[in-house]
């Protein structure tokens, strides 16, 4: 995966209004890259879940959006959410459906993983968490729409 000089957008995730901005920008960038409607919706939904995690669990942070392409020439978008919060104690547990420490549905992290092609969590206790996801264009099991 390379980032070959293309668009990189960085956005703050500090409050409720930032979540809306993140959703709107991710939607626009996915449209510009030619993502189909279902893929746009999946990526925007994953972005909303992960940005909310950054805000609620990480105490705020930022997200960068990178247009990427792989060796096969596929285009995609990578979203990287960073916070400097307390970190995740047990990542495997946090990725389980229905597990929540904030009284939510516990589907944010586990559900987001299902909406994208690549998903990674890098976390250290007391230092923060970075969650990175990538969706490739036209690779969804539901077709290119």
């Amino acid at each position: 995966m390379s980032t070959d000089e293309r668009a990189t957008v960085s956005l703050p995730v500090r409050n409720d209004a930032d979540l809306m901005t993140v959703r709107q920008r991710v939607r626009t960038l996915a449209q510009e890259l030619g993502f189909g409607l279902v893929q746009q919706t999946k990526l925007v939904t994953a972005a909303s879940e992960l940005a909310r995690n950054t805000l609620i669990h990480g105490g705020g942070g930022s997200v960068t959006v990178d247009a990427v392409s792989d060796a096969q020439g596929r285009d995609g978008l990578t979203l990287t959410f960073r916070d400097e919060g307390s970190g995740i104690t047990d990542v495997d547990r946090a990725l389980r459906d229905g597990y929540s420490t904030a009284g939510g549905l516990g589907m944010g992290l586990s559900g987001s993983k299902r909406l994208v092609h690549e998903f990674s969590v890098d976390t250290a206790l007391g230092e923060g968490t970075t969650v990175s996801v990538t969706l490739w264009r036209g690779h969804a099991s539901h077709g290119p729409r």
Binding site: V38, Q40, K42, D97, M107, G111, R114, H142
Partner: peptide, 14 residues
């Protein structure tokens, strides 16, 4: 509900 929203919600597990 829009079809794209329905697909996404089900995949999300909701």
């Amino acid at each position: 509900m829009r079809p794209s929203v329905a697909i996404t919600l089900v995949e999300l597990g909701l």
